[in-house]
Simulated assay, not measured.
Amino acid sequence: MIRIGIVGVGKIARDQHIPAIAADTALELVAVASHGPADVGVPAFGSLEAMLEQGPDLDAIALCTPPQARRETARIALRAGKHVLLEKPPGATVGEVGDLSALAAKQGVTLFAAWHSRFAAGVPAARAWLTGRSIRSVDIQWREDVRHWHPGQGWIWEAGGLGVFDPGINALSILTEIMPQAVFVTGAHLQIPENVQSPSAAQLALSTLDGVTITADFDFLQTGPQTWDITVVADDGTLRLSHGGAVVEIDGKPVVQATAAEYPALYARFTQLIRSGRSEADSRPLALVADALLIGTRERVAAFIE
């Protein structure tokens, strides 16, 4: 059994991490650390340091904290010789992910940047279909309701919290996984509410080196049905990933139809990496967000009201 501690017992930990660990016979949740309530049936501590010093023996730590403070927390865990899973985004900056990767290698432990959307059921089929094909265009529509998915989470609007790129980076993680060529940002327009630091909406233009046009429309204020779709047009057909990657259609015909069950597969991958002594810390999705923030034009819009 791999004994895991969780740092940050918020919505994502309760909704996804804890159930996925409980369902995996190779894993055991033995402790948590959180500033807030953490009544999840295992010993709870006020900090990672307290959990390491006073808690049960741990093999691995899953960091589910906001990204702004994650670097130092991850460094503490890695220095203690623990394998580390980083909830997405893996850090507040691209540079710190590289630093953590170097530290993990030095310590001889696993670092896993957990891009959960890459573990959606349809992603492998989409990648396989696109391999070797001539791609004409890609369109991403990724729109959801922040009030539903992140109620009362003010950190997401602060500098480093990413705003609409918190869900949008999920689409970019799928894009970088399924595209046969490297992708880069060529333009961006960001709508930023007047009372926060991070965008509530963004429109991106991207391209590959061989000129494939990619557009992305991100919105954090959509109510009603949520939209998580990627459409790829190739010379010989059209592929559509929907429901966040759980459903794949090719030329309108269903190829994969599944439910959104990404985290069990994500933790299975973490276990595999630990047992094989490897790390996996891809920073490409975060780099695309950073580039969009670097070159994007900014438009101030009406204040965000919770």
Score class of each variant (00 low, 15 high):
I6L: 11
V9D: 06
K11G: 12
H17M: 07
I21L: 15
A23H: 07
A23P: 08
T25Q: 15
E28C: 13
L29D: 02
V32P: 04
A33M: 13
S34W: 06
P37R: 14
V42A: 09
S47T: 15
E53V: 14
A60N: 05
I61D: 00
I61M: 04
C64D: 08
P66K: 04
P67V: 07
P67K: 03
A69T: 13
K82M: 09
L86R: 01
P89K: 03
G95Y: 06
L100W: 03
A114R: 06
H116C: 15
A121G: 05
P124F: 09
A125F: 13
A126Y: 06
W129K: 00
W129Q: 00
T131D: 15
R136D: 11
D145A: 12
V146T: 08
R147K: 15
P167E: 02
T176S: 10
E177F: 02
Q181T: 14
G187W: 04
L190E: 04
N195E: 04
P199G: 06
T208L: 04
T223A: 12
G237D: 05
G237V: 02
L241I: 03
L241R: 01
L241V: 03
L241K: 01
E249C: 02
E249I: 02
G252V: 01
A258P: 11
Y267N: 05
A268L: 06
R269W: 12
S276H: 06
P285M: 06
L286A: 01
D291N: 11
